[in-house]
């Protein structure tokens, strides 16, 4: 099924942090301010693309009974974070896309998952989704469909859930920007730390964040996805089964490394690694890397990883190899496998 799934409706992807400091207290730390300001770039980028919907996977919304999808037409509340309540209240109005949400659930069920819609007044929409919404879509110009992060799901289930979202978009012919709301390392300070003294909780977390951002900066989304378990082990607090946002994002956008990656900002927020990352579908693949090859049935030459001229269909992938089934909006002229 994945070989025929089209990802053409996915225009761009973002990785966004969701702690409320970025919205309510950014001036208290230059790093927070830098990260907050890069949300303006995200907003401008989305405005330029003008997608039909913002598709959000939030690690701040844990679910237990399968997967939950927001389907409320308009969610209105004043949110206060459980822990960072002293920063203030966040009144919000989030517009949903009921039909798309219902279709995601329908397709998730069709793919064997347990999934539910959520349409209740006063439902506690998570801090991360609210913060991101207020920073990039405060006027509720575009509908936002938020999906939960199932606590127990592992890779296969998360990937399938991502594919269900693509099914729904394709079914309804809607374009989307995909957003995962997550920190990289997520170890918060366990004592109050003066904002001016904020730092990544440990050197180990910092090093893993840098490695992850190196991958994503090179557009290696699928490589980052494949590193999720190791990243979870090294740089995440083990509150859930695994680190899964990049499994979902890779499934939604296309499980490959064909992206232009940009780290728009990175800074510690309360000890966690807060990075704003943009991934733009592109035909230019990171070369000499891991997960940009297909699964050949017939030998037709090696992939050109050592440099030299592109021999057209001489690579393993050959003609027609494009994990996302063809060109997408924003594709460059660069061809897969071409040496620099």
């Amino acid at each position: 099924m994945s070989q025929t799934t089209s990802h053409k409706n996915l225009l761009k992807a973002f990785v966004l942090p969701g702690l409320p400091h970025l919205l309510l207290a950014a001036d208290k730390n230059p790093g927070w301010k830098k990260v907050r300001n890069s949300f303006d770039q995200v907003k401008a980028s989305i405005d330029e693309l003008n997608p039909d919907v913002l598709l959000v996977y939030s690690t701040y919304w844990p679910s237990i009974l399968g997967h939950q999808v927001q389907t409320r037409e308009m969610s209105e509340w004043t949110h206060v974070d459980d822990q960072f309540h002293a920063l203030g209240s966040i009144p919000y109005k989030i517009k949903g896309d009921k039909k798309l949400g219902e279709s995601i659930v329908k397709n998730a069920k069709a793919r064997g998952l347990y999934a539910k819609t959520v349409d209740y007044n006063g439902f506690p929409i998570d801090t991360g989704s609210v913060v991101v919404h207020e920073l990039i879509n405060k006027d509720a110009r575009r509908p936002m469909v938020i999906v939960s992060s199932n606590v127990y799901s592992d890779r296969a289930e998360t990937v399938v859930f991502g594919k269900a979202a693509v099914d729904a978009l394709n079914e309804q012919g809607k374009t989307a920007v995909a957003i995962v709301v997550t920190s990289l390392s997520n170890r918060l300070h366990t004592r109050v730390v003066d904002p001016k003294e904020d730092h990544i909780h440990s050197l180990k977390d910092q090093e893993w964040n840098e490695k992850f951002m190196e991958f994503l900066g090179e557009g290696r989304l699928e490589d980052a996805s494949q590193l999720s378990r190791q990243f979870h082990k090294e740089a995440r607090v083990h509150k859930v089964a695994n680190f899964k946002p990049f499994w979902w994002l890779s499934a939604v956008m296309g499980a490959n490394n064909l992206y232009a990656g940009e780290i728009l900002s990175y800074a510690p927020v309360c000890g966690t690694g807060a990075a704003v990352i943009r991934l733009t579908p592109s035909n230019k693949a990171a070369r000499d890397l891991e997960f940009d090859e297909n699964d050949p049935e017939k030998y037709s030459g090696e992939r050109n990883v050592l440099g030299g001229e592109d021999k057209d269909s001489n690579f393993e992938g050959g003609e027609g190899f494009h994990p996302s089934s063809g060109m997408r909006a924003g594709d460059s002229d660069d061809t897969f496998g071409r040496a620099p």
């Binding site: 679910s63 237990i64 009974l65 209740y120 006063g122 439902f123 506690p124």
Partner: peptide, 14 residues
């Protein structure tokens, strides 16, 4: 004074 909605069981607890 408000309404508490269970995030896991919103169909049971509002």
């Amino acid at each position: 004074k408000s309404i508490s909605v269970d995030p896991i069981f919103p169909h049971l607890f509002r």
